[in-house]
Nucleic acid binder design. Structure first.
Lengths: 345, 345
DNA sequence: ATGAAAGCGCTAACAA
DNA sequence: TTGTTAGCGCTTTCAT
């Protein structure tokens, strides 16, 4: 058995490479960061030694010198309103992959859930990260205010609800558009009295989505009176709300603010012996695992999370390069994933 | 509007604090790292200045000097076999919180999915991380071999299937125990012929779980012939497998390797007009969102992911402190979350 | 108990 | 095109 080695052992440095290649340390540094400055043969020689020794620049030293850690901070919360865990996973994965393309990594940190600002300042003062991605913007954007104040680069996933003309870069998904898509889809299937089951009024995301339902109904000349319900995000609450609404046999469509709510409606239909799709159309929101496995399949609005991540990284690079941000606000459109809960046949 | 400031501006350093407090830089450093060396009044004075200036030591400089980044590397994959996205989320969150308590952060990196080793070596050579947490151990542990070879500290979530006496520290959840729990629960509810719907034979995790079903059935004196099915992890495959098994009316129980499979069984019952719980008992695995929202509620085996994370961090600290690891292999037991799919009433 | 000196590995600025 | 010098902010060692 070979002796256990510590991480620190035997790491070649610039000096090792330089000596071996018969050049100065600076030349090796240039070979890495400004290869066009070297004569081709010198470059080749240096690169060969780098390869041979398996040399990788020490991050700490580089960071100390350049004041750039190539680390992007992301405060990692448990499930958030409007963003189920699995959604975060899709988002974060693309974020990791996309930032990796420019040698950046994601640094996860935690913070007191009661204090949306917790954690940011310390990482900043320690110069541990170059920038932040902020995801919990649904309750205002105090983090954005803080970071703007201290001049730290950041991009948010989520628009600044309370300050529509805040100048910071953000990417968001148009929830109203998603709900409109859902409602129009139900209208096309022949449903007229389409109910909305959404979240409490305090939820900005919830109200935004609801507005999409309203506008689609208005455009179709349908009355929404008594059809818009606000409840907590919970299967049973939705089940009971659906039962109440279904007392009126004219109600044959449900657009919901989440898959959880949509599944609650499905349960109510089941209990009433109504057939999802054939008798009553139901659309959820988020295209979560629940929507995929629910019986008989729940049509749902899917957010382009991968694209959100890509756009965020793009904005991040612009911000970090100190270039002016041409399009600091980017709204992406969700799509509808059709399953049997809205199919008549 | 205040002028935009770069991250680098105006960060106080040791020297700033020292000057302000009228001591040497060294004394400030000691105030931070060896406060017991200072006279109480000096310490108080220095701490006051640190507080006043909002000083936080520069990570890069400290890392360069101490060769410790306080960063833990975690390769972030999309959904993995046996670990749904939402599960990873629960696990990672606790990991972030627990490591934070000792000033560590999680660094996410990606790697070529086809190469389980991709990414590790580079971070190691750059001395970017102090240690790794490895989660994708279901297909062997080549990463562990690599890291052991180069002497890098790490802990795996998942036992070394192919090398049962590998000496590296790991934490895992006893899947056989979980399946046994599920099967015994069904037996207690009065079911005798209990089928197993699991994954393909190549899956170590799948075979481990299956063995728990077998041992529980054996202990109860029940024959398992023809009752153990191996399919891909997919609702429809499970639905069809369940239909086939239900041709034998004596089959009234299903233990499954995942919630997806359990939900497939629920769909089959529904199509046959059988009542989950009352007529046929079904148990899933993972306690995912699907199990919670499935109609009428799917009993499921829940992994103690939070505890897994805590144990991993504990092992990590031991390894990083170069102390001998007393209990390098830790097997945790899952629990059963009972819902209506196994309730007779 | 406190201070001075040295150096971790790198790159920016300048000199050759 | 390449080499020399200096210094990023910190901690370790040794002297006081």
């Amino acid at each position: 058995m070979s002796p256990s080695r510590r991480l620190t052992d035997a790491h070649p440095t610039l000096a090792t490479v330089a000596q071996r290649a018969g050049v100065s340390r600076q030349t090796v540094s240039n070979a890495l960061n400004n290869p066009e400055l070297l004569r081709p043969d010198t470059l080749a020689r240096v690169q060969a030694v780098i390869e041979e020794l398996g040399y990788t620049p020490n991050r700490a030293a580089r960071q100390l010198r350049t004041r750039s850690s190539h680390l992007i901070g992301l405060r990692f919360e448990p499930a958030q309103e409007g963003t189920s865990n699995a959604m975060m996973d899709r988002f974060v994965h693309t974020l990791v992959e996309t930032t990796a393309r420019t040698g950046h990594h994601i640094l996860l940190f935690s913070g007191d859930p009661a204090d949306p600002l917790d954690g940011y300042d310390e990482l900043l003062r320690a110069t541990a990260v170059d920038a932040f991605v902020i995801t919990d913007t649904y309750a205002g954007t105090p983090q954005a205010d803080l970071l703007r104040r201290v001049g730290a680069p950041f991009v948010t996933f989520g628009r600044p609800w309370d300050e529509p003309d805040a100048q910071h870069p953000w990417v968001d998904v148009d929830g109203a558009c998603g709900a409109r898509l859902a409602t129009e889809h139900l209208l096309e299937a022949g449903h007229r009295r389409i109910a909305w089951i959404g979240w409490e009024e305090e939820s900005r995301i919830g109200e935004d989505r609801r507005s999409g339902w309203e506008s689609a109904m208005d455009a179709a000349g349908e009355d929404t009176g008594g059809l818009g319900i606000r409840i907590t995000d919970n299967v049973d609450a939705a089940r009971m709300a659906a039962h109440a609404l279904l007392e009126d046999p004219a109600v044959t469509g449900f657009a919901c603010a989440s898959d959880t709510l949509g599944i609650g409606v499905l349960h109510a239909l089941h209990e009433r012996g109504l057939r999802p799709g054939a008798d009553v159309g139901v659309v959820g929101f988020d295209d979560s695992m629940g929507a995929q496995v629910a019986w008989p399949g729940l049509t749902s609005v899917r957010q382009p999370l991968e694209q959100v991540a890509v756009e965020i990284v793009d904005l991040l690079h612009t911000v970090l390069s100190l270039k002016p941000v041409l399009e600091p606000a980017r709204m992406l459109e969700p799509t509808l994933v059709v399953r049997r809960s809205t199919q008549r046949s």
